[in-house]
Design a protein around this nucleic acid. Sequence first.
RNA 1: GGUCCCAUCGUCUAGUCGGGCCUAGGACACCGGGUUUUCAACCCGGCAACAGGGGUUCGAAUCCCCUUGGGACUACCA
Length: 546
Amino acid sequence: MVVTRFAPSPTGYLHVGGARTAMFNWLFAKSMGGKFILRIEDTDTKRNTPTAAQQVIDDLRWLGINWDEGPEIGGHNGPYLQSERLEIYSKYIKQLLDEGKAYYCFDTPEELAQMRDLAAKEKRSSVYARPENFPTEADVESARAAGRPITVRFAVPQDKPIVIQDIIRGEVTFAPEEIGDFIIQKSDGFPTYHMAVVIDDELMEVTHVIRGQEHLMNTPGHQTLQQALGFRVPQYAHMSVTVSDSGGKLSKRERPKTLKTAIKAVQNPDLQAIADAGGISLEDIELFLKGKMVPDMPVINDIAEFLNVHLPEINVVDFNKNGYLPETMVNFLGMLGWSTSDDREVMTLEEQIECFDIKRLAKSNSLFDRKKLMSFNTEHIRMVSPEKLLAHFKAYLQCCDSPLKDAPDDLLARLLTVTEGARTLAEIEAKTRFIVLPDDQIEYIPKVVKKVLLKHDALNMLAVVRDRLVALDELTAESIEAALRKITEEKQVGLGKVAQPLRVAICGNTVSPSIFDSVTILGIDRTVKRINLTIEKFTQSSTEVQ
RNA sequence: GGUCCCAUCGUCUAGUCGGGCCUAGGACACCGGGUUUUCAACCCGGCAACAGGGGUUCGAAUCCCCUUGGGACUACCA
C-alpha cells in the first residue's frame, strides 16, 4: 500500500509552498487508495513555537486535507510529534555508534565556522574531516568535563557513488566525498532532522517521499543512513519549487523583501516613524534595509500597515482572509508543477484525485501567479453548491469581522444570488455590506459623490425616483426596473443617470449588486430613508459647488 | 566558490521518455470589439514561445555536447 506523509516543522502558519507539498502527498495517497500521515517535526527547540503546530493543523483542515494518521487522531505508529519520540531515536543512534558507523564530535560552533571559511577560501566544498580514530567513551567524558559540546556524526560510507532513483528526476548520482559526515544528534541530545526523518519514515512505513527540490541534496545522506540501519529506501520524488514573482523561492522571506523594497521606494522615508510603527529601534530598521537583519513577522506586518503597503499573501490563512475558497487553493496549488493530459485546469477535488498521476509532476520551477489564482477563485465561487458557498461566506464574515457577520442565513443566501460573477468573498462582502449598515452610517465616497450626486441635477432626479418607488404597489426587481425605465423615457436620459444617483444614495459607492436587486433587498422604507438623508446631506454642498 | 537540479508564449503549461501527426495546443494576463444601471462576470477576435551555438539524422521543441541563464543546497534549521 502507498503511504505518504507531510512533515512540517511548526514554525508558524502553513505557507503555500508547504501546502502544495502536503497537497501532492495527499493527492497521491488518495489516488492510489493509500494512506496519508501528518507528522510534526519539532526537533528544533529554538525555533518551534507552541501554537504553530495547531496553526498548521488548522490550515490543513481548512484546505480539506485530512490525514489517516497523525496528531489529534493518532494511529498505530505514533506518536506523531517527533519531540515525543526521542527515546526511539536514541536507540538507533546508539546502534550506529556501537557498530562504528557513527562517531562523537566535540567541535564548537566557532571551530566549525572556521573550517567552513577555510574551505570557502580554498574553493572546495566544505565537508567535515573525519578523524582517523573515533573518539571513545572516555573522550566523551573528558569533553563533557571540559564543557565542550557533544554531537554525533554519521560516517558516510565512502566506497561507492551514491545513486538516487527519483520519480521526477530519474537517476541522480553523487560522489560520496561530497557528502560530509553530517550530525545526527545535536549537543542538546535531540536528533537532527536527517536522523529523525529517516527513522520515522521507516517506522511509519512510508513508501513514497514527495518533497521539495531543496531536499534533493539531503537525499544521498538519508539514503546511506537508511542502508546503514538496514532500512528500506522509499521512493523519492523531488518536486519543483514555487518561486515568487519578486524572484527567489516563495517563502516567508518574501514579505520582508517586499516591505524593504517598499520602504526604499519612499523618498526621504521617516525611518524613526517606521521604526516606531514596528516597535523596534532605528538601528534595527537600518540594519534591515541593509539586508543584515530581518525583523519578526508581527513587526513586518505592523510596518506594512503603517506604510499602507500590501504584502503578498504567503500563508494559507492570508488567502482565507482575503476571500479565497479552499477549493481554489487546492486546485491552484495542485496545478503548479503538475498538469492533466487533456488541458483540464479548473477541477473539483474529486476530479483531481481521480486523474492524479505522479509521473506528470514537472521538473522546472514555477511562479505563483496571483491573477490566475483570482481567475480560479472566480470559477470556484461559481462552481460550488449554494450551500457550500454560504458556509464559506459565513466563515469568511466571522474571520474578517464584517458587519454582515450576524446577518441571517436567508439574507446571506439572497446576497450570494445577486453577486454572481464575483471574484472573491471579500468582493461579495464589500459589495453587499451596505445592506446591514444603519441608514445614517453610509460611507459616501467623496469622489463618487462629486461625480454622481453633484452633477446633472442628480438630487432632483433622486427625489423623482423616490416618489415613483413609493408609489409602487409591490417592490420587485421587475417593478423597480419598469419604474426607472419609465423615468428614462420621460426625461430622455440613459438609465445610468437614474440608477447611479440611486445607487450612491443607498450604498455610498458606485459598486453594488444590480440596482433593482439592491433596492428590493433593502426594502422601500430604508431606501426612501437613505434617499432623503442623501438629499438632505448634499443639497447644501451642491449649491456650494455651483 | 563547490555540488546538484532546471530551461516551450509575460505567466502556468501540453508536446520531450519511444524524433516525423507541431505552419507548437490550452489556460491566465494583456490588447481590440460586443453586452451592460455600477463593479465584476459573460461573448467574439487578436498578440505572443521551442535561450544561443554545435553535432547526430532523410527529418530535431524532442537525442548528444558546449555556452548562457535561472534555481536549490552548501547549519548542532527543517
